[in-house]
């Protein structure tokens, strides 16, 4: 059998990137901006979304949520109570129980997303501080939640994730009086790993700092689409 070497010289995630671009085109056509929200499990993504979507912080902006989980609709059920469009995407349902969302999974959810009725799609990724950073889904912006109970060294341990995001929401600051954590050091460590990242100090529980998060979402919603 004759063998041939084929030069490819392409990113190994090329197959995913191609689908992400297709997603992006579809979002652009419907004039929907997309935020990919990531974090470790339990950092407070769903509570943050509840808080920012539950009040009038976003004003006239029409937001929807794509909820990624390995299984179950616990988070989607919570958000549906806010009477906003929520679509559940389970990676355990035909996607091998993946620990992250990828472009193909999001593509499969497109027909069930009410894109014509929203301006901003918030994608709550599967709780995981590693894999979601690798897979583009067709988003306009990537943000992450890091809670103060996770310690100050997370940015140095998971630089891939902290470098992938333009916004780091430091959540659960209501707990600071009970912790030994030096929040300034956490912010400094984010800055070491990703000097361009913006940090917001937030408590999804009390609502402190939520307006700044809402302002950032509104800023993303107003962005002019650039090529994916």
């Amino acid at each position: 059998m004759h063998r041939t070497k084929v030069t490819i010289a392409s990113d190994a995630l090329d197959a995913n990137t191609t689908i992400a671009s297709a997603n992006r085109s579809d979002f652009d056509r419907e004039e929907v901006r997309v935020v990919n929200l990531m974090s470790s499990p339990g950092a407070g993504k769903t509570t943050l979304l509840e808080r920012v979507l539950g009040g009038d912080a976003l004003g006239e902006l029409r937001a929807g949520v794509l909820e990624g989980d390995v299984q179950g609709s616990f988070d989607a059920d919570r958000l549906a109570l806010l009477h906003i469009p929520v679509t559940q995407l389970n990676t355990g349902n035909g996607f091998g129980g993946e620990c992250h969302l990828d472009a193909n999974m999001v593509r499969s959810a497109l027909p069930s997303l009410p894109l014509a009725d929203i301006d901003l799609l918030l994608v709550e990724n599967v709780g995981n501080l590693v894999c979601p950073a690798e897979f583009r889904i067709g988003e306009d912006a990537r943000a992450m939640v890091a809670s103060v109970t996770e310690g100050v060294e997370k940015p140095l341990k998971y630089p891939l994730m902290f470098r992938a995001c333009e916004l780091v929401v430091i959540n659960k600051i209501d707990l600071l009086p009970h912790l030994d954590l030096d929040v300034d050091r956490l912010v400094a460590n984010v800055g070491q790993v990703n000097p361009e990242a913006r940090c917001l100090l937030v408590s999804a529980k009390t609502g402190e700092g939520i307006d700044q998060f809402a302002d950032w979402l509104a800023e993303v919603a107003g962005r002019v689409p650039t090529a994916a």
Binding site: M1, H2, R3, T4, K5, V6, T7, A9, S10, A12
Partner: peptide, 11 residues
Amino acid sequence: EFEVESIVVED
């Protein structure tokens, strides 16, 4: 980098 540089295939 995380690239596939080349592959060897059987014709």
